[in-house]
Design a protein around this nucleic acid. Sequence first.
DNA 1: CGATATTATGACAATAATGTCACCAAGCTG
DNA 2: CAGCTTGGTGACATTATTGTCATAATATCG
Lengths: 238, 238
Amino acid sequence: MSTFDENPNEMQNNILIVEDDMAIREMMAFSLRREGFETYKASSGNEALEQLNQVHPDLIVIDWGLPDMSGIDLIDMIRRDDVIKEVPIIMLTARAEESDKVKGLERGADDYLTKPASMLELMARIRAHLRRSSGFETNHRIEYKGIVMDADAHEVSIDGNPINLSLTEFKLLKLFLQNPNKLLAREHILNHIWGRNTFVEDRTVDVHILRLRKALKKHHKEKWIQTIRGVGYKLAHT
Amino acid sequence: MSTFDENPNEMQNNILIVEDDMAIREMMAFSLRREGFETYKASSGNEALEQLNQVHPDLIVIDWGLPDMSGIDLIDMIRRDDVIKEVPIIMLTARAEESDKVKGLERGADDYLTKPASMLELMARIRAHLRRSSGFETNHRIEYKGIVMDADAHEVSIDGNPINLSLTEFKLLKLFLQNPNKLLAREHILNHIWGRNTFVEDRTVDVHILRLRKALKKHHKEKWIQTIRGVGYKLAHT
DNA sequence: CGATATTATGACAATAATGTCACCAAGCTG
DNA sequence: CAGCTTGGTGACATTATTGTCATAATATCG
């Protein structure tokens, strides 16, 4: 049972996208990267196989219609490789090709999606498969200009330097990272972190902002959290 | 600095509707406004881009068939803009366009809906995306026979009764929930919760197991965590 | 430039969390 | 059963966290 040999702190999920349409490929890569995945791209079956000599992704997304070989052929070749034959594969098929769905699954894809599919659904399935194959939740990573939060590992680093935050500070920063460049009113911060029906002073927010600012300043002198007088605070890198 | 007005006491969600059919556009705007959203309207891609120079909406709804450019082109341009590239986009496609031409092109969108779509469904999806992107009310939920963990809210309940866990207890339970019915060796638990290079006694795990067991027992007399002598522990409901 | 409102900050007390230990209880082996 | 091993448990000291307050600093506005 070597699945939990992985330290969640170091877990990085690599995803290979095999798709010949550049626009789609780049869109997918963009969305995946935004969600904290490392992406590798290939525009043809042969390119994919080349990549697989170098990288062992945790999951592969394959378009059914590739220029040099069908997605199924590619799956076949992947499944023959002892090293990577266990990697989850998600197949993309156009709706017209739906009859091939069974074929694709039988031939070794773990899941398939018909195009057009929403990124949301693709993301959900990717996460589901990674969960299944690794036994762990994928790390939910949030970034903002050098601040990297791994919400699952409960870790934050800024320009690579890990910083230490208390739980409240962590929640506060998370809220900011999820709402970059947005003004967060005190009341909203209170509601979100302490809950709607708690009796905590407004000023308490200030103090925690202070503590968070101190923590952020430790490795980075710049100003991250702006004060919007009379209202609240805002995460913005000036 | 935001370019649009913020209400200090109320987080106002701004939604941009890009739709050339006036009737549909106005109907959507009306419904959204009735639900408390602030709406901005554009009847073409260029008009939308113009709007986006002034307003940074929290979500954009784009019709696939625009007079001056395709929805995908518009998405492309939006995604290239550093300021707003992360905004959730919901794409509307007519059913006739679904099969061929559209293919996976709306992959830059976070979600899509086929027209005619019910306002109810559109509203539901809008809310879902806003929740997700604003950081409010996310639910990363893990369940195991009555134990429900909301990892994002950092809350655990058992058969509906909330229980209080320290951070370490929380991580420990999370590890168990992610690996139900699996034997977790002490060493693995240590690695996962304290990291590989820390100097914590083996027996410390025991103590935290004890504390977690106490917390779980508070509302539920049954045994959740089994001891596997000589190895470690296992989450199993006996 | 004051006068006022608002935020920043240091200090503090109360509480919570954490890791370790010593000792007890329960399994296991022969 | 006797002896050994391993896990359970309560106690404890240490450190971290947290909310509040008083006061200083700063912004805002007439």
